[in-house]
């Protein structure tokens, strides 16, 4: 029987996790990927007294001693937002809520290195907390307001608006996603915001976006350019056409990025920065940020750093 040292908690269609599995295999490590979408096809038996989680899959039995696992790569939501829903069958509600809790309970593997710990992610995913901590660490932070009434918003400035949390909305057969958008003060005043608060920030322009991926003390940075220039507004709207140019950050900024990740108790963080007139502003940190797109587009082998960290 196989005793497992590294766990990859994911979904079988999460290709980013593939990179980690391939790298751990290359290093000859005993790992097991547990995919939420495949769990109903597996036999799971967790003996809490013996700290032994046993998983039977395709006639193979994997033994996971929860007090002996060395590293866990966590690529799953920290909680599901729509478990209870009229459009979801009771069967699926039960399946999703209970397996999700099963995943969360794997946090009892507390002697292992986690990338990232779901509890650290839960805290770090809050934009206002991010801004507070970034400011304390000495980052420049754009002037920011959270509001559902814009009357007191200072006049004469240009603003952008974004959601406090990821806003993915369903419109019948279509979906909608809230990107960062330019907005005029008058537009905000004329909009009924009582339904939900919004984040309003001073508009940084002209700017160059940076994506900084931190794993422990390892830092990978890219500039994001369109036709060799910075992008006005949300670069994700042009994501098929942009270039990701590897770049070296100033030591001071690099050190702040590392401290920020550490301060949140994270191992991994994808930080968005924007440069205006040679000043780098902190925009946000994504504790569950994507990085697979940087492997080919910027030749950043982030999976190596993640595996190095897991093996620490």
């Amino acid at each position: 029987m196989n005793e497992i040292s590294y766990l990859l908690l994911s979904d079988s269609y999460d290709f980013t996790t593939d990179y980690i599995a391939i790298e751990l295999e290359k290093r000859g490590r005993k790992y097991l990927r547990i995919d939420r979408d495949c769990l109903t096809n597996e036999k799971v038996f967790w003996n809490i007294d013996d700290n032994l989680l046993q998983i039977e899959r395709s006639k193979n039995t994997f033994r996971i001693f929860t007090d002996r696992v060395k590293g866990v790569y966590y690529r799953a939501p920290i909680y599901l937002r729509e478990t209870f829903s009229r459009s979801t069958s009771p069967k699926n509600q039960l399946k999703r809520s209970q397996w999700m809790s099963f995943y969360r309970n794997l946090m009892c593997i507390d002697k292992a290195v986690w990338v990232n710990s779901p509890s650290a992610t839960f805290h770090a995913e809050n934009k206002i907390i991010q801004l507070h901590i970034a400011k304390r660490l000495g980052f420049h932070v754009p002037r920011t307001f959270i509001l559902n009434d814009a009357e007191e918003l200072p006049k004469g400035n240009k603003y952008i608006i974004k959601s406090i949390d990821t806003a993915l909305l369903r419109y019948g057969s279509r979906e909608a996603f809230v990107y960062t958008n330019d907005v005029a003060r008058e537009e905000l005043i004329n909009s009924d915001l009582s339904l939900a608060p919004v984040v309003v920030q001073e508009r940084l322009s002209p700017k160059v976006d940076f994506r900084v991926t931190v794993i422990g003390t390892k830092v990978y940075a890219v500039k994001i350019l369109l036709d060799d220039e910075g992008i006005d507004g949300d670069w994700r709207k042009f994501k098929d056409d942009v270039s990701f140019i590897p770049t070296q950050l100033d030591n001071n900024i690099e050190s702040k990025c590392i401290k920020l990740v550490k301060k949140f108790g994270l191992a991994f963080g994808a930080i968005d920065l924007a440069m205006v007139d040679d000043i780098l502003y902190f925009i946000e940190i994504n504790p569950t940020g994507e990085w697979a797109w940087l492997v080919d587009s910027a030749n950043q082998r982030i999976y190596e750093a993640i595996c190095d960290y897991l093996e620490k």
């Binding site: 290709f15 391939i22 937002r81």
Partner: peptide, 28 residues
């Protein structure tokens, strides 16, 4: 061969592929 080591069209070449769910599929 591993899909992610090939030069196939399915690899996540751009941030978030072509599906916006918020990173980590948190909106699901």
């Amino acid at each position: 061969n591993a899909l992610m080591l090939e030069n196939g069209d399915f690899k996540p070449r751009t941030k978030k592929e072509d599906i916006e769910t918020g990173e980590d599929r948190k909106g699901e």
